[in-house]
Design a protein around this nucleic acid. Structure first.
Lengths: 200, 200
DNA sequence: CTCTTTATTGACCAGCAGGTCAATACCACT
DNA sequence: AGTGGTATTGACCTGCTGGTCAATAAAGAG
């Protein structure tokens, strides 16, 4: 006996929300069609009706996670900083704190990330998000090699390094939270970036 | 009808080797008792005989992976470098290349890492390996804040940053291999580390 | 040679997974 | 009121999973 009807769009959204919560708690392994359905108080057939296959549900969830993590918004306070070096610093600072702020979501992204090694679609999706993220970074600091461009401050390499520094901390933290505090890590990062671009 | 007999130790090793190969190809999801048994040309009951539970097999495999990735051996050429800054550089260089050298193994570690979020035993094991790894790093560069120790070159924070830089590159690479080449990345890292510790 | 121990196997089981399908109730339109 | 499309459901199927168990063969002890 069918229950309450809903529009396609809102149901999909509701299911994705349930999937997100399930994945946060039980991990991607625990992301079973039936678990999601139970969480959303729906029959598991209905979930399969809206997302034809299970992987489509997973990919939908991945989009959600990517939008939450690998999307860089540069606030005006940062954009208006004149010195590119300080701009980069402020941005790294902001993103590091943002990533650390929601560790469970990042952990979920990391799970997808690892699976990207065996799943081409996942790899491609994350690749697109990551490229966009790095490019945004690159744009913000593109003028850093200002005048004397050498191989070392290639903006592409610099963006990659920045990403490493940003995701590196929460990734280490999720394995042992009580190692280095964020202040200590950020201090080292600051010190490293601070001297970047200055002539020796 | 039982087949060839083997000593406990060698069989365990053989099974672990098979598990490693299976996990490399199919990922941890694909790491099923039967798949491992088939790979080792054994009955799946025998695998369960040597590793009482499936998770014990997984943990044994994790030990193997950790020993291969998060163990730092400092060669004499590096240890005898006099300036701590150059020593750190050489070490980061070596480790970055080593990690990038066997990307599939690092990918497997990353899978375990992600699962560490939901599994306390895994988290603890990786935590121990990671701590050892960082400590070794810390020891090598402990004299960097040489004379004028400020909060920025706290060796703990510096070790964490180094680890971020090292694992950050192959982790990004495994998602899109054709972004920044290792030379470009290493150049940026060099540049960043090169200026570390120099007075402004 | 016998007896015990132990590594090995195939048969079997229960549980849960994803997926299919016919039946059904709700809604919009005429 | 009737009609058709569609969201929703429960029952069902098949395949694979981890795990158990009794039977069996090899090896060693006496």
């Amino acid at each position: 006996m069918p229950g309450q009807r809903e529009s396609q769009a809102t149901r999909r959204e509701q299911i994705l929300e349930a999937a997100y919560e399930v994945a946060l708690r039980r991990g991607i392994d625990g992301l079973t069609v039936r678990a999601v359905a139970a969480r959303a108080r729906l029959s598991h057939s209905l979930v399969l009706f809206h997302f034809k296959r299970k992987d489509q549900l997973g990919l939908g969830l991945l989009d959600r996670v990517l939008a939450g993590t690998l999307s860089l918004t540069v606030p005006n306070e940062v954009r208006t900083i004149r010195k590119p070096r300080e701009r980069l610093q402020a941005l790294v600072d902001q993103e590091l704190r943002r990533m650390s702020g929601e560790p469970r979501r990042l952990r979920l992204l990391l799970e997808f990330w690892a699976r990207g090694g065996h799943n081409a679609v996942i790899r491609q999706k994350i690749g697109a998000g990551l490229e966009e993220y790095r490019t945004a970074f690159q744009d913000v600091v593109s003028e850093m090699s200002d005048g004397k461009p050498n191989r070392a401050n290639s903006s592409a390499g610099l963006a990659a390094v920045a990403v490493s520094l940003i995701i590196g901390y929460p990734v280490q933290t999720m394995i042992d939270p009580k190692w280095v505090g964020p202040e200590e890590y950020l201090a080292s990062v600051h010190d490293v970036l601070d001297r970047l671009g200055k002539a020796a």
